[in-house]
């Protein structure tokens, strides 16, 4: 959202700066009693607005669009920001170390990739749960599941997170 906010700030900032100055210039032009426009040919739009009533379909559509856009923007800005870093427990009061959630997932995947029988891995780490999906072609996978669970749990414990997410191992059988 930060990146989107930044782009919106630049676009709307430039539009506000340019639009505000042009609006003031047009007002001065009109106040000086000169006919016509300075830069923006607004006469057509003004004529159209004089012909429209508030109950017109186009006006209602524009109103609905504005309300929807405003609601969307407001909701997006008020939503809490994603905390994508998990803090590592430390004794040092002055140092905060954190691991990216993607990094935690990759550490789990690396820990089990070498287990015989594992054909592929996928991970999804949240603040409360870390889900590790393992694909295997083995028919009897009870032993594999125990091994994967053990290695992944060890890798997660090795990160030493202050509040480690609960590990959730999911085995997916694929055709050999």
């Amino acid at each position: 959202m930060r990146g989107v906010d930044r782009v919106l700030a630049l676009v709307l900032g430039l539009a506000g700066l340019g639009g505000g100055v042009l609006l003031a210039a047009e007002v001065v032009q009109a106040l000086l009693g000169r006919p016509g426009h300075l830069v923006v040919p607004y006469e057509g739009a003004a004529r159209w607005l004089r012909e429209q009533t508030w109950s017109g379909a186009w006006v209602l559509a524009v109103g609905a669009g504005l309300a929807a856009l405003g609601l969307l923007l407001l909701a997006a800005e008020l939503a809490p920001r994603r905390r994508t870093l998990l803090v590592v427990a430390t004794e040092e009061p002055d140092v905060v170390t954190a691991v990216t959630r993607g990094g935690v997932g990759r550490a789990l995947e690396q820990a089990v990739a070498a287990v015989p029988g594992v054909d592929g891995t996928r991970s999804r780490v949240g603040r409360r749960t870390a889900r590790l999906t393992v694909r295997t072609a083995l028919r009897d996978s009870t032993e594999l599941e125990a091994q994967v669970r053990e290695r992944a749990a060890a890798a997660l414990a090795g990160l030493g997170l202050a509040a480690a997410p609960a590990l959730d191992v999911d085995l997916q059988r694929v055709a050999a």
Partner: peptide, 27 residues
């Protein structure tokens, strides 16, 4: 800038929402 962008865009969203609702109520 991150903080200000968030506040300014939220205010802008509220203004757009209010303007849109006003147009709908009038219409």
């Amino acid at each position: 800038a991150v903080r200000v962008n968030r506040v300014v865009l939220a205010v802008l969203g509220a203004v757009l929402l209010a303007a849109g609702v006003l147009v709908l109520l009038l219409g």
